[in-house]
């Protein structure tokens, strides 16, 4: 193709630089505050590069009982929800892609609908339902809600991966006389593993990052998730200093970020590719 003119090139780099600044600067500022001491934070001339690196904020955040407790709650609900979602959606995705019946249409319809409806519509009946089961303000209750909340997307992803597992492999195994469960466990599952891992990461991130359901369904301080506790700290209950708050925020981002960077390759466009072509 034709070569780009130098002036255009310069413009492109300038634009890229502007994007990098817009995307990256807020992140740098957060990290910067997390490394500043209390005295420097009180200064009226804040600077991006801390005058001296102070790790105190991280130490305070990592020993704050409230934060630790919430982090544990977040791990429990996110991991719990992820495991249940995978256990439940792998067989469902298999059935929905291999069997030819109305369930597939119903599932697709539900996945679409669940994207459109505002959560406020669902949260009130959920609140009443959990209350009648005695699961309100409890981590198991929140976990179950996260299962249902992440399920549409998990199912959507897994159905996509499942469809790319060639049916011929199963047919060959079936001809060799393997029973259906043998086929699913020793032929389909190994091929599906990368897809399952990606879906599990996605489910974990969704649950870890979630805030609205936790806000509505959890009322006891000891049962708060990390997102909820940090939100309360920054609000009217501001018990935490800004430095430790920033440090806690950085730490709370790490799990999602690590998983996300793993997912990066798979996420690149894959999400809507199916939706658009479908």
């Amino acid at each position: 193709m034709n070569r780009t003119r130098p002036l255009t090139r310069a413009g492109q780099y300038l634009a890229l630089l502007a994007y990098l600044l817009f995307l990256g600067y807020p992140l740098l500022w957060l990290v910067s505050i997390s490394l500043k001491g209390a005295r420097e934070l009180a200064s009226i001339h804040p600077s991006l590069i801390p005058r001296s690196l102070v790790w105190d904020n991280y130490r305070i955040a990592l020993t704050d009982q409230g934060l630790l407790r919430s982090a544990l709650n977040s791990v429990l609900t996110s991991v719990g929800a992820t495991v249940i979602v995978i256990v439940v959606s792998v067989p469902a995705a298999y059935a929905l892609t291999r069997f030819r019946n109305g369930a597939r249409t119903a599932a697709t319809l539900w996945i679409l609908i669940s994207q459109v409806f505002p959560t406020i519509l669902i949260v009130i009946p959920l609140f009443l339902l959990l209350k009648s089961f005695g699961l309100l303000d409890s981590l198991p209750g929140l976990t179950v809600v996260y299962v249902v909340w992440t399920l549409p997307f998990a199912l959507w992803m897994l159905m996509g991966y499942m469809a790319s597992v060639p049916q011929e492999v199963e047919e060959a195994a079936a001809v060799d006389g393997a029973g259906r469960f043998r086929v699913v466990f020793s032929v389909v599952l190994p091929l599906l593993t990368p897809g399952i891992v990606a879906t599990a990461m996605f489910a974990f991130i969704s649950a870890w990052n979630e805030f609205f359901f936790a806000l509505v369904l959890i009322s006891t301080t000891e049962k708060r998730t990390l997102a909820l506790t940090l939100a309360k700290y920054v609000g009217s209950e501001g018990q935490l200093q800004l430095g430790p708050l920033a440090a806690g925020s950085v730490l709370a981002t790490v799990p999602s970020l690590v998983f996300f960077l793993f997912l990066q390759k798979r996420l690149s466009g894959g999400l809507l590719a199916g939706a658009v072509k479908g």
Binding site: L23, P26, L27, N209, A227, A231, F260
Partner: peptide, 18 residues
């Protein structure tokens, strides 16, 4: 990709600090 991965609550805290 970072803003995509960050919990919305953390994003809000970050911008409030900024």
């Amino acid at each position: 990709l970072v803003p995509w991965a960050m919990p919305p609550v953390i994003v809000a805290i970050m911008w409030r600090l900024l």
